[in-house]
Design a protein around this nucleic acid. Structure first.
Lengths: 213, 213
DNA sequence: TGCATCCAGTGCAAGATTGCACCTAGTGTA
DNA sequence: TACACTAGGTGCAATCTTGCACTGGATGCA
């Protein structure tokens, strides 16, 4: 019965790691961008400067983790919406419809804006912007695909993967367009722009995925 | 400026230590005595069983620390009362009076009852009862003496030490008598008994310490 | 008496954090 | 150009925690 904490060592290591990630997110939020040094971060996380590099090979890796965590919050909501959606197993378009509905309802622009702020916003245009956001979004894709396959065990895995993959890559594309058009603002106008882009994306994917009715 | 935390290593070690002490006190309070194993304690403190023995050579040492901590709470109050007492530097009996007043007001029976519970109360009479309580009270003596010397820098150190030492050893004596008489109860009757014993002690010490007026 | 069981306490090696010295690239400045 | 200064990142030894195997004494029981 001593196994209530599965390996204290692992647990405490995870604690330190998330302390670092939390501290980084705090600082980023406070300053509108990743404008702080390792020493500052280490002190905020109540951790040695060396320990930061023990957990993350570089600050960019840390920022990637922060990105993923920020996205994860929205994706949790996203997947929860799908989970609450009634299951229509017989329907051919069930998978598409439930994802599309969740995408319309979820607050994706907020997540994208957060990522932009993490990566430096519209200001000093760090060159690693693309790889970082790509990596973050790819984890989202994995989670979404897993959830879809869980809900539709009878579905063709290849078909599901193609659907999710094309939807998510489409989201990345329209996200970049959206940032280009709005600068990452979150006002009503920008949100309307997002809905426009999203509708066009969903329409396009639906056309490719489902036979025209 | 990185020295805001004076040596993180030391700080975290102290954290672990007090986590163990706190867990021990919790368990003692819950069960009315030190009736638990090391594994239970370690799990409660979220610490490895081995770490307990890294900080405390034996469980008795741990219990002593818990004793001291419990007493320290009351002694803090005790010293605070003295500190709030107006200083009468010229008076010969100032030192005695301020201690005597604080002793009358402080809730010493509660502290003694706590220690008794820690040591097993009136039940299975562990043999190490005396050394433990002696050690705990001796730390109280040190703190009290230091405070007295701080307040009366002009006083004769030997005189002050004799006063404090005889008062505290007297407290230990009447505490044992009090336990004998009342069994460590905390009702009005037992408290009256305590006040009786204390008055007799203070009178006796005053007679020896101050010339009869 | 012999045996099993429990529990405080120890020895030890592996993992993790820490502090410190050090390296290196980029940047400002005379 | 030369110099200094900052800040990310690494090597390394010391320290601490942890898990595990183990000892030894106390207790219970046949």
């Amino acid at each position: 019965m001593t196994r209530s904490t599965l390996d204290r060592r692992t647990a405490q290591k995870a604690e330190r790691r998330s302390a670092i990630v939390d501290a980084a997110r705090e600082l980023i939020d406070e300053r509108g961008g990743p404008v702080f040094g390792v020493d500052e971060l280490a002190e905020r996380a109540d951790v040695s400067r060396r320990t930061v590099f023990n957990h993350f090979p570089s600050l960019d890796d840390l920022f990637l983790t922060v990105c993923e965590d920020a996205l994860a919050v929205v994706v949790d909501d996203f997947l929860a919406r799908i989970a609450r959606t009634p299951l229509r197993e017989g329907s051919r378009s069930a998978m598409f419809d439930e994802i599309a509905t969740a995408m319309h309802d979820a607050d994706l622009p907020a997540a994208i804006a957060t990522i932009l702020r993490i990566l430096g916003g519209s200001s000093p245009a760090k060159d690693h912007k693309s790889p970082l956001s790509d990596a973050a979004f790819s984890r989202v894709t994995d989670r979404l695909l897993a959830e879809v396959l869980r809900r539709h065990p009878a579905a063709d895995p290849l078909e599901a993967e193609l659907l999710v993959e094309s939807l998510m890559s489409g989201v990345v594309v329209i996200a970049r367009h959206w940032v280009e058009l709005t600068g990452g603002r979150l006002d009503a106008d920008a949100r309307a722009t997002w809905q426009d882009l999203l509708t066009r994306l969903l329409g396009s994917v639906r056309n490719g995925y489902l036979p025209a009715t």
